[in-house]
Computed example of a mutant assay.
Amino acid sequence: MRTTVRLDPEVAAAAEELRRERHIGLGEAVNELARAGLLARDRDVPPFRQRTAPVGLKVDVANVAEVLELLDADDAEGAR
C-alpha cells in the first residue's frame, strides 16, 4: 500500500540511519521501526507505581509562602 506520511525529524533520522546500515529502502526501514515499536508495546511491563515515604512534616501546599517559611524555620533550627 502506498501512503504519504509526515515523519518527525528524529523518526526520519532513525529511518535514514537504519536504511543506510542495512542497505534497504526508506519504506522498509520505516516498517522495521514500526514493527519494533509494536513489539515493544506488547511486552509485559508492570504498571508504574509511585512509592512514597513518610517525612514527618505535614504541610498544606495551598499556601506556598507558608510552606517556605516552615521549611526555612526547620533549616534555621537544624543549623543551631
Score class of each variant (00 low, 15 high):
L57H: 03
D75I: 12
N31G: 11
L70F: 04
E10F: 02
Q50N: 08
L26C: 06
A15Y: 05
A40F: 04
E77S: 14
R80T: 08
A79S: 13
T52M: 12
V64S: 00
A15L: 02
V45Y: 12
P9W: 00
E32R: 14
A79L: 12
L68P: 01
E21G: 05
V59F: 05
M1E: 14
D8M: 07
D60L: 07
G27A: 09
V67M: 00
Q50I: 14
F48S: 09
E32C: 11
V61F: 10
V5P: 09
D8V: 06
A40V: 01
A53S: 11
D8H: 07
K58N: 10
R35Y: 11
L7W: 05
T4Y: 15
R41P: 10
E32H: 10
E16T: 13
R22C: 05
D74R: 14
G37T: 02
A40R: 14
R49Q: 10
A34P: 01
E28C: 03
R35N: 10
D8W: 07
N31L: 11
R43A: 14
L68R: 00
A29Y: 04
A62V: 10
R6Y: 14
V5L: 15
P54H: 08
L68A: 01
V30L: 14
E17P: 06
L26W: 06
P47A: 09
E21W: 01
V45F: 13
G78D: 04
T52A: 09
E69R: 12
E28S: 11
P47N: 07
